[in-house]
């Protein structure tokens, strides 16, 4: 089966995000009442797995072994069956 995982990686809440702070300053300069910005990345992976359980196991490997560093980042994901839109 083909699966598409959309994996979102963000810095852990206790880790400072200087990029987010810079973006917050820039958004405030637009006159917006922005209190906090966290920046991260989204990675869309199309892959094959036998079933949904195997697919979720595969995404956990992707998340912990490469896409997020557990020392500084958390990740979350959505899993869909089928090719990307």
């Amino acid at each position: 089966m083909i699966f598409v995982a959309t994996i979102r990686v963000l810095p852990k809440s206790e880790v400072r995000d200087p990029q987010g702070e810079a973006v917050r300053g820039a958004l405030r300069s637009l006159g917006l009442a922005v209190s906090e910005v966290r920046t991260g990345k989204e990675i869309v992976v199309t892959f094959e797995a036998a079933d949904e359980t195997a697919a979720r196991d595969a995404v956990r490997v992707m998340g912990t072994e490469l896409l997020a560093n557990p020392v500084i980042e958390d990740y979350a994901y959505e899993l869909k069956e089928g090719a990307p839109a």
Binding site: R16, P18, N69, I72
Partner: peptide, 17 residues
Amino acid sequence: LCEAGLLPGALVRNRGL
């Protein structure tokens, strides 16, 4: 070495960017 877990901690974007 930090990414590989051979050393503790992690290295992130410099404070002042």
